[in-house]
């Protein structure tokens, strides 16, 4: 549905997005994950034709954004809830948007109702709380009943109730068969809502695929072993072909790609005493930080 090929954006000396290729499947919630400053918002703006790519292109259903007639009917987006005139009412904001894409005025009241802003629709948008602004932004995104929805960090700064609302809302949109592309810097958030993930760091693609797969490969569970003869233990484990990392801080070894059973049997066969034998799954968040950190280091090394 959304197809990015070699998308690149350069601002002066900074490369914000670097040869980024990915695709977003129809009818899924796809998370767009990356640390702050990874180029997520820039990519979103390029999808909407607001920023011009330095190289490459991004197509929606085979078309460039500017080729869409009445684009709000195909793509709805909430990039920033603050993109409203503070002295204009929510209703007026939606009314002018509706007019540009030949949408009936009744649709304005419909979307106001969907997001629950009907009662305050005639108030100036400047008086809204962040949560209300976010709802207004979502109303604007839904205005054209679009097949594709883009959200940039929709839960940022919201209170728990607002977060819960947005989360359920995105899941509902996906159930309706829409394509949702939502960015976040929180993997835990994406793990709850997204079925697919596009992960970027420093403007480059790190991985793309189903969320579960990413979580599995990223979580990199290790077996932690402690004992009085760590040096010998490390040797025999390595001889058995396992990857062993010495973790002096915990006076332990971390063995990856193995199980507690396997490590325990090797230790017993060599007559080595163990004080601890346990499975340590790093959290998704840690794994994500680990992965993006590597990317950051790689990029810095390459440009230095």
């Amino acid at each position: 549905m959304i197809e990015s090929v070699g998308l690149t954006k350069r601002y002066g000396a900074t490369l914000a997005v670097d040869d980024l290729s990915f695709s977003v499947r129809s009818g899924t919630v796809t998370g767009f994950l990356g640390p702050n400053g990874a180029g997520k918002s820039t990519t979103m703006r390029m999808i909407l034709g607001l920023d011009r790519p330095t190289a490459g292109e991004v197509r929606i259903g085979g078309k460039l954004y500017r080729e869409l007639t009445h684009p709000l009917r195909t793509v709805g987006a909430l990039l920033d809830a603050k993109w409203v005139h503070p002295n204009r009412s929510a209703r007026s904001q939606l009314r002018w948007m509706a007019r540009t894409n030949r949408l009936p005025e009744a649709r304005v009241d419909e979307v106001l109702d969907i997001v629950g802003l009907t009662a305050v629709a005639r108030q100036r948008a400047g008086t809204y709380s962040l949560g209300m602004s976010q709802r207004l932004g979502i109303a604007g995104a839904l205005l054209g009943d679009p097949e594709v929805l883009l959200f940039d960090e929709p839960v940022n700064g919201l209170d728990p109730e607002g977060i819960h609302w947005i989360r359920r809302f995105m899941q509902q949109l996906a159930r309706e068969g829409r394509t949702v592309f939502v960015s976040s810097h929180l993997l835990s958030e994406m793990a709850l809502t997204a079925t697919d993930l596009v992960v970027i760091g420093r403007g480059r693609l790190i991985s793309q695929g189903p969320t579960a797969e990413f979580a599995d490969s990223a979580s990199g569970a290790v077996v932690q072993v402690r004992g009085p003869h760590l040096g010998e233990l490390a040797d025999v484990l390595r001889q058995a072909g396992l990857a062993v990392v010495d973790v002096p801080a915990e006076a332990a070894l971390h063995v990856s790609g193995s199980s507690t059973e396997h490590v325990g049997e090797i230790a017993a066969a060599n007559g080595l005493v163990l004080h601890e034998l346990s499975r340590r799954g790093s959290s998704l968040e840690e794994a994500f930080m680990e992965i993006t950190k590597q990317d950051v280091e790689y990029v810095t090394g390459a440009t230095a």
Binding site: L50, L72, V84, M97
Partner: peptide, 11 residues
């Protein structure tokens, strides 16, 4: 107020 972006997004 960046409504120009909303404008160019709609048109």
């Amino acid at each position: 107020f960046s409504t120009i972006r909303t404008t160019f997004q709609a048109v």
